[in-house]
Amino acid sequence: MIEAIIALTVLAAIFGGILGFAAIRYRVEGDPIADQVEQLLPQTQCGQCGHPGCRPYAEAIAKGEAINKCPPGGQETVEKLADLLGVEVPELDASAQEKEKPKSVAFIHEEACIGCTKCIQACPVDAIVGANKQMHTIITKECTGCELCVAPCPTDCIEMRPIAQTSRTWDWQLNKIDIAVIDVASGSAKLEEADNA
């Protein structure tokens, strides 16, 4: 009996020591939840969630803010976040819903640009090149479509243009294509709705 108590006490002390040591030695720096959440956010950095960037929103989510406020992420991101945090899937916030739209990138009508550099200051990812009193232009590949550059432009020459589909990003929805049958004899083409599915 005594031996058992002593043995258990000793064991408890040893494991307690190990656990205590591990807690200090292998302490996780930062907020792992916020990191994971940030991984799932679209990184558009647009501020539509009410935070100045995706990281602050991730931190706010980790602190318990609603997960349905990111319009660029859409419902899919909400679902992923709910999955990660183990909560019910909420609907995308109503105001976020109306902002949901096809992915676009900014385009500067270069002839109307006066080179005020306002857009450069607004762009969160430095996707605009230009200099004072010089024409500005967008690096389409780097643009996240956050629309932050549109409002500051004094001449309203920035426009958001939806990204066109190419054969590489095509979604293989075969029954959406209009099959054209070329009439070789007459050289005219007529479109026929063909259902290949």
């Binding site: 647009c46 009410g50 100045p52 932050l148 500051p152």
Partner: peptide
């Protein structure tokens, strides 16, 4: 107010907030 250095972001945030407030 926004702690962010980017006024455009701040504006966007404000817009989002204003909308909510409006609602």
């Amino acid at each position: 107010t926004a702690s962010s250095a980017n006024p455009a972001v701040a504006a966007a945030i404000a817009r989002a907030k204003a909308k909510k407030a409006q609602a």
